[in-house]
Write a protein that binds this DNA or RNA. Sequence first.
DNA 1: TAATAAAATGAATAAATATGCAATTATGAT
DNA 2: ATCATAATTGCATATTTATTCATTTTATTA
Lengths: 160, 160
Amino acid sequence: MKTRTNRLVIISQILNTQQIKSQNELLKKINDKGFNCTQATLSRDLKALKVGKIANNEGAYYYSIPTAKAAKKISDSSTSYVHNGFVSIDFAQNMAIMKTIPAYASSLAMTIDMANAYEIAGTIAGDDTILLIPRDGVSEIDLRNRLILIFPELKDRIRR
Amino acid sequence: MKTRTNRLVIISQILNTQQIKSQNELLKKINDKGFNCTQATLSRDLKALKVGKIANNEGAYYYSIPTAKAAKKISDSSTSYVHNGFVSIDFAQNMAIMKTIPAYASSLAMTIDMANAYEIAGTIAGDDTILLIPRDGVSEIDLRNRLILIFPELKDRIRR
DNA sequence: TAATAAAATGAATAAATATGCAATTATGAT
DNA sequence: ATCATAATTGCATATTTATTCATTTTATTA
């Protein structure tokens, strides 16, 4: 049976696995799967799914379903952040840049400093950002693992 | 002086602070600021900035500038660097991390400091790395454009 | 089940966005 | 400076997406 809900499911599957760049392109794929509908319906479907249109590296635009990642970000900022204000962590140029809830950076940085972790040469905290400077020779993985030791609850949030 | 780069800066400022839902809406704001251009130009500008259109919680669509996190490495460290030691630049968590030829970081950072760029709150230079800290509210695009103003020869290496 | 309300859809079209082309302006090289 | 090349832009229009209105399908209630 080909109900609207089925169609929405298929659409989100398609958008999660392919870079679709127009509704007509999507329409063809949807028709191939046995749904017959028109562009007008797809326009409404995409709105219902809150699908956005964003650019990839090459600058080509494609439809994008709000990802689990984005959803997570939203839930992070509203409710379920961990106790110390941790929001996210990024690695660049062999440093770690940790984002926190506004105003939480210095207390979180202090917690890190007090752990006396060998891997961490020092920290610089702003309002909602901490820069973690690893010692020479310390890899990103080493740093991640150390942070997980300090904050076990980060385990599921720190890996890609 | 109202150059294209100026316009791009203003556009990104607007998009970072307001939820703009159509190019005509943006066109009015841009015109108010003294730029006169047409919708066609804005269409091209948005593409150049890789602006996407995404839904907010209520399901209304608005333009969105890609975040620093989503932006990826934009320079190629294998090609020849420019005269002042610049090698590459990366953006993360709304900061810029600039790599230079070894020992060139502090002199390059000094050049940046002397430009007295509003967008840049400060710099920290190591041996071959400079951390550029933007002022609150300054976007990655603002920073890129400012750096291009300081070092015109970066133009092709700093923007996609 | 029949009657009624709500939701979903297509066809046509409005609205929004992108683009081909020609003109203009900026950039570089000699 | 002068010429050549590349970048930027507006206009007109093509392409893409959203919406109105009428109709059909699905759900709800008596």
